[in-house]
């Protein structure tokens, strides 16, 4: 207690120095600890976007939940989408604690989503046209998510790091669930095989974009530097994308699938995958909610929000 109050009396630059020292030595920052404003704001932006993306991310797959082709698949995909909602809930709770000193709540997060101020992940603006897409989302989108989230497992902010630990463990199941759907299709009829090739072809660019642009030149801003300075993440977008290629390209090819990029190859001297850049101007459009399904999915959230308003009001009445 005595230590806390003497810390409170320090000028800001000394508090910042102490804060950076804690981060450098691997100590975790907790919700009630002092933190510099840009650290708090970066975390709020990152975690509320992550949380809301989990929730918006449930929607493309959810389209296939009632349609899953067997009892086993129905049960599995219901559980999978439920997990995503659960991740959303866990993350929004972490974001809510960070927002509390700013007198903001979950209500603001939802409002910001609906007004377009809060973005959700580019990949969840895409169309999930076939059952193959339901498999591909689990396999490769969740696979990509594991790579980016593992990168933050040691994040300096304790509540986020702990939430990610649980989320990553569940994402591994999701990737296996997706892989199981894909394997069944890959070992199936000609039509089924064609279904996954079609999914890969349509989702490839979105998967490359998943990790974000290489630097700020694409979108004008990038949070990479600040998140690395504060030890929230350790690797750059491009390093994560390369990790994804190394892990998944051999698997995609081993299923007899073709990559929709004939230039893709591993450059042994540089130790890097060489690939065709996706259309980053399209990425800019997508994250501005001008993607193929942006409006429709936001509309679903809006309907849920408005048509259930009476429920939330009734919940606030003490009975």
């Amino acid at each position: 207690m005595a230590e806390t109050s003497s810390f409170d009396l320090l000028p800001d630059e000394q508090r910042l120095a102490r804060f950076m020292e804690r981060i450098e030595t691997g100590e975790k920052i907790e919700a009630d600890d002092w933190m510099p404003e840009d650290y708090r704001m970066t975390l709020i932006k990152l975690i509320s976007m992550h949380g809301i993306s989990e929730i918006m991310g449930a929607l493309p797959e959810k389209e296939w939940v009632p349609k899953a082709p067997s009892l086993k698949r129905k049960l599995a995909i219901m559980a999978k989408v439920q997990d995503e909602m659960g991740h959303g809930q866990l993350l929004l709770r972490v974001a809510e604690d960070l927002m509390e000193p700013l007198l903001k709540s979950r209500e603001h997060i939802i409002q910001d989503l609906l007004s377009g101020k809060l973005k959700f992940h580019n990949v969840f603006h895409m169309e999930a046209k076939t059952w193959g897409d339901a498999g591909l989302i689990g396999w490769l989108v969740d696979g990509a998510a594991i790579i980016t989230q593992t990168n933050m497992l040691n994040a300096s902010y304790g509540p986020y790091a702990r939430a990610l630990k649980r989320i990553c463990a569940e994402e591994v199941f999701h990737a296996q669930h997706g892989e199981a759907i894909i394997m069944a299709l890959a070992e199936g009829t000609g039509k089924q095989k064609a279904m996954i090739q079609d999914s890969i072809d349509r989702w490839w660019d979105a998967l490359l974009m998943f990790f974000g642009p290489g630097d700020a030149s694409t979108t004008g801003t990038s949070k990479q530097d600040i998140t690395m300075k504060y030890k929230i993440r350790t690797k750059t977008n491009e390093e994560l994308r390369q990790d994804f290629f190394s892990k998944y390209i051999p698997r995609v090819l081993s299923l007899g699938l073709k990559l929709p990029d004939e230039t893709m190859h591993f450059d042994k001297t540089e130790g890097l995958w060489k690939y065709r850049q996706p259309d980053w101007s399209q990425f800019k459009q997508i994250i501005k909610n001008n993607g193929p399904k942006s409006r429709e999915r936001l509309r679903l959230r809006e309907i849920s929000y408005t048509s259930n308003k009476w429920v939330l009001e009734a919940l606030s009445v003490r009975v």
């Binding site: 929730i55 449930a58 929607l59 959810k62 939940v65 009632p66 129905k74 219901m78 989408v81 439920q82 909602m85 959303g88 809930q89 929004l92 679903l300 309907i303 849920s304 259930n308 429920v311 939330l312 919940l315």
Partner: peptide, 13 residues
Amino acid sequence: SEWLGLAPHIEED
């Protein structure tokens, strides 16, 4: 399962 993602709040979902 049709309700998924549409419940009154995330906890209920």
